[in-house]
Design a binder for these strands. Structure first.
Lengths: 342, 342
DNA sequence: TTTAGCACTCTCATCATTAGAGTGCTAACT
DNA sequence: AGTTAGCACTCTAATGATGAGAGTGCTAAA
């Protein structure tokens, strides 16, 4: 649907004022701050029309208008001028991310922190995944006679570690055997190929050493699984309490904590490279249907790998947040790619 | 101050009822649920006395009584029968912690999760520190021609890693030089000895290689610092929103996020091995003065290393939470010690 | 020392009233 | 035909009055 230019101006004014103040906007108020050269009666007529079309609604008869979900949607799609992020904000983001220290998780944590401060929203992000990632390196660092720390590094830069206890003593020989198995059967394989079945077969084929080495192999498989799993990071949850017309903060926090649904959501829409905006009921999950979710995928080495998302009330400053998120996502991808390639 | 037995009974009844229901307790209500064989008038007299002494107070004239801070304190110190944790809850805790997977941070995360579920409080915990910890191992895992991941393991089991970029190519020779320096100057030293000054001196002494190796040494020093730093973990923050007579959840969440004050608090009281309870204004920090903080130190290898703490409203089920926290702390210490020694 | 009884206080919910904001409609104006 | 002034109408939110109910403290009797 296409609105007349004047209707668009009025709609944009309503939305921007409402986002800024949280108050429903009346016809007179609107004239005060927006430079629309008509009388309040005309505005009223236009507003009535916009109401009929479903772009704005009234909390009650004697109140002003507030944007409907459809209104926000129109605004985001057509009206909002996605302003270029000011250079100093860009610099700020770059500066804050430059000292994050290499590992994807650290970069994301830093990015999330910045984003939470910048936007006053809750921030979610997923660690990079890469179906084609393979196990790049496995290290076994002995800690004592019966314990060792196993470290696994994937080709996509994910590092995971776990402490492993063995029943029998961790001899040099045992460790060597382990390394042999690893380099023969696992290095260069994808994590998903490290199945329990394979582990068992291998263990059995070792005969007498089987018992001694199997705890190591089990840990290996645990690690492989961990490496493969997307992790969800949450930050700025307390920002949800800022917004006072937003009573269900608890519910949302619990939803975010569950993690899994969001991970799926991000994975599902991986194709679109653009920033996505889901407003209110557009969200599949009930818990988010009073909120807006804005998310954007970052790409490492040219492939979409993970996403950063913002969650806040539907009454949120889309025009400001979207460019910030977009730019930050870009930088995150760039930094991760830098580290990985060479 | 010592109260008469009957006063103690009444005080305990008021506190327990108030903790359970959140409602101020009147003299009649009290008779209904507690088996105190006197009339409401007598209870009223006793209550008046308890009010005068400062153990209970009235929100307003026509309301019942609620415990004062002093009342809670008396209850925690003398009345509350610290009941032994039921065996099945013990088992539950043990089961949930057994598969946490070795690293201190993972153990604490798991413990915090359990505690948050069990207590409905926000949970804070600090990673183990050990002034006598030394650098046990440093590994450099090449990722590309100019990047590597450096991993540092301390004798107290802390593992930290960072990605490091070098300006010149990471040759095998360079790596070997690095390992030589590390084993000669750093292994077995405490992290605090890795000063910038030392790094600079070392770099200079290398002459031509100086420039190539200094990024590695800088990363090493970063890692040493990280290893030494106590980290604060937060969990169950959303639990703060559960309690409805507790409006300042946001303030507390922000306070917790800042982290540092709590780290200091825990470090400051390290001497006492017992569980500590700080009620309301007993807390030094303003942000906590409407809350209660219960914390307990875990010890790894016989030395106090870190702490777990619970934060909730002053109206909290002390009698149940304290034993839970205590037991969990014990187990955490035990598991960490297991991993470390051998 | 305990208890019954009673006057007193204060909160909270309910209801009526009112000021104010904002609308939609009509009729006049450009 | 589009715009505007004016006005009746509607609904909210604030205010104040009223009354029921809960709980107390005190007194006098047991």
């Amino acid at each position: 649907m296409q609105l007349s230019e004047r209707k668009e101006k009025i709609l944009a004014a309503i939305i921007e004022w409402y986002i800024a103040t949280g108050e429903p906007v009346g016809s007179k108020t609107l004239l005060e701050f927006s430079r629309i050269p008509v009388s309040s009666a005309t505005v009223r007529n236009e507003m009535a029309e916009l109401s009929r079309l479903g772009f704005i609604e009234q909390p009650h008869t004697s109140a002003g208008r507030i944007p409907s979900q459809m209104g926000y949607r129109y605004y985001v799609d057509k009206l909002m001028n996605r302003y270029e992020l000011p250079i100093n904000e860009k610099r700020l983001i770059e500066a804050r991310l430059s000292d994050a220290g290499g590992e994807p998780q650290q970069i994301l944590e830093q990015a999330g922190q910045v984003l939470a401060e910048l936007t006053n929203c809750a921030v979610v992000s997923t660690t990079p995944t890469d179906e084609n990632a393979v196990i790049r390196r496995v290290e076994l660092v002995p800690l004592g006679t019966h314990t060792a720390m196993m470290v696994m590094l994937s080709s996509s830069g994910i590092l995971k570690s776990r402490v492993c206890r063995t029943d029998s003593e961790l001899t040099l020989e045992l460790i060597e055997t382990f390394y042999n198995i690893v380099s023969k059967h696992f290095i260069g394989k994808s994590a998903s190929e490290v199945s329990i079945a394979l582990i068992q077969t291998l263990a059995l084929s070792l005969g007498s050493k089987s018992l001694a080495i199997s705890p190591l192999l089990v840990t290996l498989s645990d690690l492989a699984q961990l490496t493969e799993q997307t992790q969800l990071l949450l930050q700025g949850q307390s920002n949800l309490l800022h917004h006072n017309d937003y009573p269900n903060a608890y519910e949302i926090m619990e939803f975010l904590r569950r993690g899994e649904p969001l991970t799926n959501l991000f994975a599902g829409h991986k194709a679109e490279n653009n920033t996505n905006v889901l407003i209110g009921k557009e969200n599949f999950y009930r818990e988010l249907q009073d909120s807006s979710l804005i998310y954007s995928h970052y790409s490492v080495g040219g492939k979409d790998s993970g996403a950063l998302g913002l969650i806040g009330p539907t009454r949120i400053d889309y025009a400001r947040l979207i460019p910030s998120l977009k730019y930050l996502t870009e930088i995150v991808g760039k930094i991760m790619s830098d580290t990985l390639e060479d």
